[in-house]
């Protein structure tokens, strides 16, 4: 068991999903009977192959898609009664492609856009912008044109523009796409700080290493159903189930599975653990 990092102060459900069903206009069923809860301060990952319904699920949480049936409660309020703009105050959604959100001529303006839309008073806008700039380490880039930045920086700007609306929950769609290792780690470190401050983080991804390294909870979706909901350790030990949802566990877990006969446990999710276990087993001859 991993000790819970959620302090009692933040406990309580921030998102409740009940029997959610979503059918696209053309008749394609994307979600079938999904029921989930997210607690305040959680760090979760929704994983699944293409077409598993993970993006659809995320879009129902901020009202971009309205469920065919079932219910989504955001902080105890029925999401179907709220506009996308109202929901954005609680559920922030950073799209996969930052270029779909960036249009202003400076980073500062870009980050102001969200809180201004929500009609926050000027001093609050300024406070939120400063906090978002700091959270994504964009201080030096405030006056720069967002579209002239590198992809890693552009993604941080687009995430900052969502954080600036001060949402309780931050959903990130494939945050590691197109980033190198260093940029990804840099971004994840900043998300960790936000999570420690009590924000709920939900990653949507098929990057299993990202999940193993950072998430505390993994929700595996396949064909619109929740196949598994556990900690990463539990999720990665079931290879068959992952394969069924077109996912591959991180390389280190796959290696551990091959070393089972040598006394290495299956539920390994980090290189350090593997090294420790190998040394404990007396090394590999």
């Amino acid at each position: 068991m991993i000790p819970s990092i959620v302090s009692p102060l933040h406990e309580g459900k921030v998102i409740t999903i009940r029997n959610l069903k979503y059918v696209y206009e053309g008749g394609v069923t994307a979600l079938v009977e999904v029921s989930l809860d997210f607690k305040r301060g959680e760090y979760a990952a929704i994983v699944g192959g293409n077409g598993s319904g993970k993006t659809t699920l995320a879009k129902t949480l901020n009202g971009l898609l309205r469920p065919t049936s079932g219910q989504v409660l955001i902080e105890e309020r029925d999401a179907s009664q709220m506009t996308v703009a109202e929901l954005a105050k609680t559920v922030g959604y950073a799209f996969q492609n930052p270029d779909h959100q960036l249009f202003c001529s400076s980073v500062e303006e870009e980050i102001r856009f969200g809180p201004q839309n929500l009609g926050y008073p000027e001093d609050e806008v300024r406070k939120n912008v400063d906090r978002a700039v700091e959270a994504m380490a964009l201080g030096k880039l405030r006056a720069v044109a967002p579209l002239s930045l590198r992809l890693g920086e552009r993604r941080r700007v687009s995430i900052a523009s969502v954080i600036a609306m001060n949402p309780e929950v931050l959903i990130l769609d494939e945050p590691s796409t197109g980033l190198d290792n260093e940029e990804t780690e840099e971004l994840m470190a900043k998300l960790k700080v936000l999570n420690d401050e009590g924000k709920t983080i939900i990653l949507i991804t098929h990057d299993m290493r990202l999940v193993a390294d950072h998430a505390k909870r993994v929700i595996v979706l396949s064909q619109g159903r929740v196949l598994l909901d556990s900690d990463p350790r539990g999720a990665f030990s079931d290879l068959d189930l992952l394969r069924q949802s077109n996912l591959q566990p991180p390389a280190v877990t796959q290696l551990a599975h091959r070393l089972v006969e040598r006394g290495i446990p299956k539920d390994i999710i980090s290189p350090q653990e593997l090294v420790f276990q190998v040394l404990r087993a007396g090394g590999i001859k």
């Binding site: 960036l102 249009f103 202003c104 001529s105 044109a145 967002p146 579209l147 002239s148």
Partner: peptide, 8 residues
Amino acid sequence: YYVKRSYP
């Protein structure tokens, strides 16, 4: 105006 500024 915007596109010229943001996409030099």
